[in-house]
Every structure is written in C-alpha cells, then in structure tokens.
C-alpha cells in the first residue's frame, strides 16, 4: 500500500516566503539605487556593496559561531538592512564608516535581540543614528563625490535643503531670503533629482516608483507611509499658515530629507511596525508629528530617523492595546 502524507488542514500554502518578500523590497529599491549610482558613481556602489556584504557576513557569523544555529542569511533580510543603511549615508562617507554602521545594525540592533523578527528597533536606522552621533562631521558632510556619468555638471552644493534652511533661520534670516539665495531649491528639482542629501534621497520619484511596486506586489500596505505624509503635511501646514516666514511649507517638508525613504522603506519594516491597521495609523501619525517637531524645534535639521526609532519603541504597547475589529459581539458568559 502506498504511504500517504497526513497532516492537519490547511493542505495547501499560498507560496509566499520571507525570501520572496525581501527580494521584492530589494527590487523596489532598485530605481533609487540606479539614480544614486548615476549621481554619485563609484562611492554609491561601494557603500551598497560594503553594506550588503557586511550585514550578510555579520549575521552569518553570529548565527553560525555564536548562536550555533543554521544560518538563515538566504532569507535576504540582512541584505535589505545593508542596502537600506547604505541609502541612508551621505555619498561621501568612507567605506569603513559603512562597515561600522553595518556591524552595529546587524550585530547590535538585530542579533542581540534574537535575530529576524525579534528586534525592537529598525536595524538600519539604529546603524544610521549610531553613526550620526559617533561621527557627526562625516555624517553631515554632503559634498558630492565625482561620478563618471555626470562630468561637467556643477557639483559644488554641499548641504541639504533642510540644513540650509535650519542654518539660515538660526542666523535670524527669514525663509524668503534663504530661498531667494538658493534658487536650486525648487520643488521640481526635489521631485526628480536633488543634489544634497544621503545616497537614497536623491530622487523622490524613484522612491515613489519603488513604493508603487511594493503596493502592487502587496508587500506593504499604504497605511503607514500615507499617514506619515498626511500628518507631516497637516502639522507643518498649520505652522506654515501661522508664520510662513519661519516655518517651511508642507510640500517642502514632504519632498526634502529622508521623509519619503523613511516612510516607504523604514517605517514599513514588518518587524518594527504594528500588527493592526489601527495600530499602523497611530504609528504613522506619531512618526509624522515627531518628525515635524524635530525639524522645527530640534537641534537636528532632519528628524525622521529619530521619529521612527521613538515610535518603534511604542510598537509593543500599540500591539498590546490596539486590537483588530473582532467579528461578532462578545457575549458575557460564566
């Protein structure tokens, strides 16, 4: 008699896997990567390659020799962390900075908590913030390395729109004069290609393209990015209406800095975001609010990394108290 398999139901599986999801995230990051490589040339390639290889290597080493378990680097999650961290560094960052950042991201932020699925904070962001506080000069050096693809284009800009505005305001200038002095800070330029900023922030359009791919493949749901962007627009809009000479306008806030990169690829990280739709909305609103507050009133020109990390720490609470809409009224019994 033939020996059959027996198991509890269900007997079929939807064919999704962690590896496929991570692969989709990498694919979604490709447009931004290509734009960065076009813009920053070898330094962008170098950062991404060092980041991905270090992250995978560190995870493999820790799983194999410290945790003594079968390494699971083939699920590509470490590679995603490496690429994301690379996209979060200034293009002029040296390769060893990337190396240190990757070791912190995987070694400290991910594996000490138990590896994939157990970390509280987004590993790539922990790596970035670690570097930002440890190497503040290098991490805010926005000078642009030469690229083979764009010889002859003026590469003199050395600051992000956000830091230009922050510095100008702190000198007591009004927004009008600051923006008048920098004609290159136009929305069109920000949407397609902006010169100052970290590797992955170059083109808002490329990031949005990645977002659309993720939505089509149903890897992420729109709730978190959309609420972040709406909250930023709303909160900054209120301030802007109160005093347009001191506070930047909503569109400027959405298109500048790491808001798009952060809200599309970092805040939507499965492990460190809430499990329910309602929770996701709360999470997004929190990130948007904190980002704007840091930008307007904080010491740093950019705040989304901190905002996401702060909200990461609230996620367990959100998961505990925000429950999905249960089917059927509960009848008190017993």
């Amino acid at each position: 008699m033939r020996k059959l398999l027996v198991s509890p139901s269900p007997h079929i599986h939807g064919n999704e896997s962690t590896r496929k999801i991570m692969r989709d995230v990498l694919i979604a990051l490709t447009p931004s990567l290509l734009v960065s490589i076009y813009f920053f040339g070898f330094s962008a390639i170098q950062l991404v390659v060092v980041g991905a290889l270090t992250c995978v290597g560190v995870e493999y080493f820790i799983q194999k020799y410290l945790m003594k378990i079968e390494p699971t680097v083939d699920d590509l999650s470490a590679a995603v962390t490496g690429v994301l961290l690379a996209l979060n560094l200034p293009p002029s960052a040296p390769w060893w900075l990337m190396l240190i950042g990757s070791i912190v991201a995987i070694g400290v932020a991910k594996m000490t908590f138990g590896g994939l699925g157990h970390n509280i904070f987004n590993p790539a962001l922990v790596g970035r913030v670690f570097l930002l506080v440890s190497f503040p000069v290098m991490m805010t050096d926005w000078s642009i390395p030469t690229s083979w693809f764009r010889e002859g284009i003026d590469a003199a800009t050395g600051a992000t729109p956000l830091s230009i505005v922050k510095e100008g305001l702190s000198r007591g200038e009004t927004l009008e004069t600051i923006l008048a002095a920098h004609p290159d800070l136009s929305y069109i330029e920000m949407l397609f290609i902006k010169t100052g900023g970290s590797v992955g922030e170059v083109s808002a359009l490329a990031l949005i393209l990645g977002f659309i791919y993720l939505l089509v493949r149903k890897v992420v749901r729109p709730h978190i990015p959309v609420t972040i962007l709406l909250t930023i627009a709303l909160v900054s809009g209120i301030f802007w209406m109160i005093d347009p000479t001191q506070y930047t306008d909503p569109l400027f806030n959405i298109l500048t800095g790491g808001v798009l990169l952060g809200s599309i690829f970092m805040a939507t990280d499965y492990v460190t975001s809430p499990m329910t739709t309602k929770g996701m909305v709360i999470f997004g609103v929190g990130i948007g609010l904190i980002t704007v507050l840091i930008r307007y009133f904080g010491a740093y020109p950019e705040g989304i990394s901190f905002a996401i990390l702060i909200m990461n720490s609230v996620v367990p609470l959100i998961n505990k108290y925000i429950k999905p809409n249960r089917f059927g009224k509960e009848v008190k019994h017993g």
């Binding site: 008699m1 020996k3 059959l4 398999l5 027996v6 198991s7 509890p8």
Partner: peptide
C-alpha cells in the same frame, strides 16, 4: 511498520487529535 507519514507539527497532542497515528 509506518503506514503513512505525518507531516504536521511534531506534537503528540496535535497528532492524536487529528488521527490514530502513523
């Protein structure tokens, strides 16, 4: 001799509630 292969979670309790055994 085994007459079928159990392919579910390795737990006697789950296996026992499913069927008589392999």
């Amino acid at each position: 001799p085994r007459t079928n292969f159990y392919d579910g979670t390795s737990s006697c309790k789950i296996m026992n509630s499913l069927y008589s055994g392999d």
